[in-house]
Simulated assay, not measured.
Amino acid sequence: MSRKVIELFYDVVSPYSWLGFEVLCRYRNVWNMELKLRPAFLGGVMQESGNKPPAMVPNKGLYMVQDLNRLASFMNIPLRHPSDPFEVMFQKGSLSAMRFLTAVAEKEKDGDRWVENVSREVWMRIWSRDEDICEPASLSEAGLKAGLSPSDVEEILAMAKSQPIKDKLKQTTKEAIKYDAFGFPLIVCHVDGKPKVFFGSDRFELMAYCIGEMWLGPQPDKRTSNL
């Protein structure tokens, strides 16, 4: 049976993207799939689609706090809210971080283990330890902690400032928009040449049904799924 290709479009400013990211990474060797991590810019998707952040609606914002706490516990992900979520999400944003991750993906030609490890570390900074993800020193620290060498980090930081990387991030964001994205995470499952699109981190049971796989919960192997 041919392996299914599953693309995950995400932005580290989105905590729900982190939840979806971790679950799909846990299923790499459970489902018959090839997971492709696609760092993209949520701000561009929101602007193009005309969507508004749910946290801008007070009642939705209050619900999201409770919802994320419950999901973090359920999925065994160390998600904790930053002290000033509004500043983190809307004032500082994630453009520099997503350019950095795009550069990591360009630097890593074979596989995406670097992208996985660095993405996770950046999420840990913003959504677990309430640390900066905008300054070059912050991104450098994330890269080093994720296992990159100092020389690789230096090269990736330089790449992240280049026009080709900026254009690559725009291109990936446009690809998400072509799938009618209006937010992240966006999961695109390619089965028999046809894309099946799912939004959010709470559609895995339905997704498994649609692609002919078995959903075993957010921790398919509790012995190996702890962060």
Rank of each mutant, 00 (worst) to 15 (best):
V118C: 07
G183M: 03
K194L: 09
R203T: 05
E87D: 15
Q66H: 13
E34F: 01
M64G: 00
M214D: 13
M75G: 00
I187L: 08
M75L: 08
V191Q: 14
A97S: 12
W127Q: 07
M207P: 03
D221C: 11
K4P: 04
D112C: 14
T102W: 01
P218T: 03
V23Q: 03
L8I: 09
M89P: 11
N59H: 14
S73Q: 10
T224N: 10
F9A: 01
S94C: 07
L42V: 10
P82G: 00
V88F: 10
P82F: 05
F86H: 11
R38M: 10
I165V: 12
K174V: 13
F204H: 04
A40C: 15
D192Q: 15
I77F: 02
Q91D: 11
L35R: 05
A97D: 02
G20T: 01
S119A: 15
L62K: 12
G143L: 05
D202Y: 05
N51D: 09
L37A: 00
K196T: 07
F182A: 06
D67K: 02
P54N: 08
R113E: 15
P185M: 01
V57G: 01
S2I: 10
T224W: 12
M124E: 09
W18Q: 02
F9P: 00
M124H: 12
A142S: 14
A176G: 03
G61I: 02
M56K: 09
Q219L: 14
K168W: 06
Y179V: 00
A158Y: 08
L148H: 00
A97K: 01
F199L: 12
N117R: 14
T173L: 06
K109Y: 10
M64R: 00
W18P: 00
G93D: 07
C189V: 14
S49G: 03
V191D: 13
C134E: 13
V30R: 14
A160L: 05
G143P: 02
L35V: 08
R80D: 01
V88H: 11
P195Q: 09
S201T: 05
G143C: 01
G50L: 06
V65D: 06
W114N: 11
V88N: 08
K196L: 13
M33Y: 05
V30P: 04
L144V: 06
M75S: 11
P164A: 02
S96G: 07
P185E: 00
S201E: 08
T224Y: 11
L148P: 00
G111P: 00
R28M: 11
F74G: 04
V115G: 09
W127V: 04
D192F: 09
V13G: 08
R223K: 14
G183D: 02
M98R: 06
M98W: 06
N51I: 06
C210Q: 13
F182W: 10
E135K: 14
L227I: 11
I187P: 05
D202G: 04
E141N: 12
P54G: 07
L139H: 04
